[in-house]
Write a protein that binds this DNA or RNA. Sequence first.
DNA 1: CTGAAAGCGCTTACAG
DNA 2: CTGAAAGCGCTTACAG
Lengths: 345, 345
Amino acid sequence: MAHSKITIKELAEKMQLSISTISRALHDHPSIGKKTTNEVKKLAKKLGYFPNSIASNLRRNKTQTIGVIAPRIDIYFHSHVISGIEEVAYKTGYNVTIFQSHDSLEREIKITQILQSKMVDGVIACIGLETTDCSHFAKFDELNVPLVFYDRVSKHFDVSKVVIDDFEAAFKATKHLIQLGRRNIFHIAGPQSADIFKARQEGYKAALIKYNIAVNHKMIRHTAELSYEEGAGCAKKILASGMIPDGIFCSNDYTAIDAIQVFKKAGYQIPNDIAVVGFSNYPISKILDPTLTTIDDRAFEMGQAAGKLIIRQIEDPDHTIATETIVIKTNLVVRDSTTIDSAGA
Amino acid sequence: MAHSKITIKELAEKMQLSISTISRALHDHPSIGKKTTNEVKKLAKKLGYFPNSIASNLRRNKTQTIGVIAPRIDIYFHSHVISGIEEVAYKTGYNVTIFQSHDSLEREIKITQILQSKMVDGVIACIGLETTDCSHFAKFDELNVPLVFYDRVSKHFDVSKVVIDDFEAAFKATKHLIQLGRRNIFHIAGPQSADIFKARQEGYKAALIKYNIAVNHKMIRHTAELSYEEGAGCAKKILASGMIPDGIFCSNDYTAIDAIQVFKKAGYQIPNDIAVVGFSNYPISKILDPTLTTIDDRAFEMGQAAGKLIIRQIEDPDHTIATETIVIKTNLVVRDSTTIDSAGA
DNA sequence: CTGAAAGCGCTTACAG
DNA sequence: CTGAAAGCGCTTACAG
């Protein structure tokens, strides 16, 4: 054990200086002479000194660390958001420490406790599917730890947020199908306990209504987690029902992708028979045959925005910044799954 | 600033006890009476006390944290390994803090420095593509911080490792194509600077040789990072060359997937004209048409093994455990991309 | 069963 | 320009 680390105490002894001077020299404190500063740094380098940031954190009551809570990092959206956070964080001298809730409320609560006791400087979180009550996040406010939610947020919890306009994005996606001339548009929806999936469903409905198409609840199918398997399952049920739509708006790319496979195998042409729009713009969506029309949810930008926001709040000396909601612009990426050969109108 | 946290000092004052007693009670120290222990815990809970783990870390010289360095977490393989690590870690009371090197040596070096100064209890790392010299990892040994490499490892660096047998897996994959009756087998290879991709190429060659098929270097194509785009690029070059293989072994799933798309569009049937085997068993591989035969690289198990290994080393009081190499068994998952309709032999 | 005291490695007002 | 000293919140031998 005994991490045999060099400490400033040893540097002080070796240089016949006080630890105060060493500490200041290492931080380029202006009151220390150029010469002393350089000599201290040289020796530190030579002996392989690294500051013990645990000690510094304790003393300064600051960890220079941002905690991130994501439902799961093996979902591309989240790892992409995290990359955006990291990019901003590293540039500004912050580290990022990542936790997965696995969409479990119990785990999410535990993580908030860990983060509280680890004294991160700020927390960026996307709440899990089981989470309806956010009271376990209230503690951060008491501790003056800034908090930013991203993507899945709670309406009833006053905190800074970085989101997309799910309603508008879904409206746009559905409108696109309508403008292709489609009238029988199905929706594969996410769990309605999550506001984002509810908003997407509302956007879908609103577009239909706007264009005088009756909303038919039999043409909406809810899934538990928008998995590949559920996408295929929905498609099979659609086929079995005999009511074949001419368009489908899916609440994510996974369900869209697997639904397309099922329809293709059943002999339907995509997009001529059934046009499909996904949601998220995962890398695979431009690889598939046909390539998938989808909403680009700007995950990376979302991460950047969340990172900038949390750092601004952390570095606001009196924590007086009001909570703020940033809405990231999405856009519809039109690809082959909605590009009709015989140019529709 | 001023995280307005309750400390054991305040608990001590409120209870008219010493901080020693409070500390012991909170940790169920046997020498403290049941009654006192319970009362302390009750008050702690009531006041919302959380231990300041930074202080405890400093005092105990232990952070209860495992640092993970991955090239990127938006690659499914890595996020899956991390999930395996986390599962083991959480069960044992460790936290996991994740860093991405983005395959940059500079960033990897910086991360090792951060981890050294943050005093993690152990480090699990997958070295980046630029990394040939591992000397920046040597410091961990000096600091008595256990280190485990996973997947991409350095032969010349004596450290515990969790790997798969890439040679054997590639051999198995290639042999499978040969047993289908294929003789013109192409290989889309990864960068040969990485030992794992070199080993896969060697396994491919060895299988050919074993079955008396001449190795033709024109039938091996190297990529920089095995991206989708490179898979498509290779496929297009193959088409342009006119030398159409009857089988392809790809060093990962991404290249296999996009190559298949290109061949299909050019009118070739998969697997009848060209049988394809990938490597990694990504979730998408069982969704595509055709579903992809691939090597399951057991990423989750790899993470579990790495987690168990690092914890064993951390908790070995004298750090006397010898370095160890664990080889995780892979298996070939046979799917449609190598299932010939007219039953081959 | 409980407490006083030292100390983890650092930072930073205060004094000179 | 430099140093002595206090203290961040905790743990743990030592003493009783």
